[in-house]
Design a protein around this nucleic acid. Sequence first.
DNA 1: GCAAAAGTGTTGGAGATACACCCATGA
DNA 2: TCATGGGTGTATCTCCAACACTTTTGC
Lengths: 228, 228
Amino acid sequence: MSTLTELRSTAPWLVHVSTDIVVFGIWQDQLQVLLRRHPPRAGRDAPWALPGGYVGPVEHLDRSAEHTLAQQTGINDVYIEQLYTFGRPDRHPASRVITVAYFALIPPQRVKDISIRPTPEVRWYPIECLPVLYLDHNEIIGLARQRLIAKLNYSTIAFQLLATEFTLSELQRVYETIMNEKADKRNFRKRILALECVEDTGKKFRHGCHRPAALYRQKSPGVVQYIK
Amino acid sequence: MSTLTELRSTAPWLVHVSTDIVVFGIWQDQLQVLLRRHPPRAGRDAPWALPGGYVGPVEHLDRSAEHTLAQQTGINDVYIEQLYTFGRPDRHPASRVITVAYFALIPPQRVKDISIRPTPEVRWYPIECLPVLYLDHNEIIGLARQRLIAKLNYSTIAFQLLATEFTLSELQRVYETIMNEKADKRNFRKRILALECVEDTGKKFRHGCHRPAALYRQKSPGVVQYIK
DNA sequence: GCAAAAGTGTTGGAGATACACCCATGA
DNA sequence: TCATGGGTGTATCTCCAACACTTTTGC
C-alpha cells in the first residue's frame, strides 16, 4: 500500500471548496453565459471566469452558490441546480480547490438588465464566442450546456428562460436556440399543448406590425417537471 | 451584508472532503448495496455505512473513490460515475465534511465472491431492507437508485451488472429487478437487438433441465452508450 | 413424457413527422 | 396593400405494447 494511500485513509486532509455557477440566459436569439473578471477590479489583464467563490464554514453548498451569484452579479431567486464536482488535484495553481459547479437559468428581463448595462466586471458572452476562461471553466460550461440540452427533452426546464407570461413562439425560439435547430411550428405547439402544463392567459402580446400573439403561462409557475 | 457573507467571500475556508460510493450488484434477483461498518473494527455497535473516505491532498476525486473502494472492499476496475455532492453544513457531527458521492456497478461473479463470504466488516444488503445508515447515507443511496433507474432507460448501463457474456434472459432480469416490474420477453428482446449493441457469441449456456440459452456479448465491451 | 426456461411474429394504437395556407396587425 | 409573424389540420409513418405457442433440454 502506497504512502499516499496511508495518508488519505488516516488523515482527514483539508481542502478549499468553491462553487462556480454557469448562468444561462437567452438574448438576441443566442444562448449567453454570464462571466466576471477574476479577480475583480484587476482590469483587462484578468481572465474572464464563472461567478463563484469559496464555501463558507456553515453554509449549505446550494446556499453558497445562490449567495455567491447574488453577491457578484445581483442575480437572486432564479432556477439553479447542482451540475458536477470538479476535482483534478492540479486544477488550481496555488492550492487544492475542489469546485462544485451549478447552473442557473435567467429570464429575459434580467438578462436584458445586465446586457444593456455591462460593466467592466460582469458581462454576457454568447456561448459560441467564449474567450479562454480561468482554470477549467470552459470545460464546466461545456458540461452545463450538455445537461441543459438533455433536460430540454425530458423536463419543462425551458420555461425558466422565459418571463411568467410568454408566447408559444418565444418558447419555440428558446428550444431552437439551445438545440441549434429549427422546429416545425405546428408540431411544436401540439407537443407543448399536449403536456398540459401551460394555459392561455387570454391576454395578447402586440409586438410588431402583424397579428398579436396569445400569452401563455405555466399552470404551476416555477415548477420544473419531468415529462415522457 | 452579513458577517457570514464577509467570511465566505474573503476567507478561503478549509473543509474536509470525502467520497462515498454506492456499490450496486444483483444477487438472488434483488438489487443489493455494499455496506461496511463505520468505523471499521468497532463491532456490532458501529452503524453500517457506504464505503468511503477522505480525499487525499493530490488525489483526483475519481481516483479517490476508486481507491477507497478497492481498499475497503477489494473491488477495483469496475464501472463508476459521480453522482452528486452532499454538503449540508450539519451533515457530520464533528466537523464540516462535504462528500462527493459516486455509484458503481459490479458484475455477478464479484457480487457472489463477497456474498458467500461476508465479513463482520463488509456485506451486501438488499436495497429493500437497508438498516439505518451512518449520516445521510440512506439519502445518498436513494438518489443513486433514482439515477440507476433513469439511466437504464437511456443508456446501455445495464451491461455493467452482467458478466462479459450473458443471456438475454439474464439481461431482462437485471431490468426487471431494478425497475421492479415485469417485462414482456418478446418485446424486450426486440428492443435490445434493435440497439445493435450486442452480438451472439455462438456459445450456449446450459443451466438446468431445459433448453440452453444463447450467450451474447456487448459489441463494444465496457462501453456505456446513450440511446434513443 | 413432463417440467422448465428458451425462443419466436403479427397486429393495432399512439404519438411523431411532414407539409401549406389564411389571419391580424402596423406602416 | 403589403410585409410580418401568428395561428391552424390532415395524412402518413414509426415505434411500442399486447399477446400464445413451439423448442430443447435434464430428469
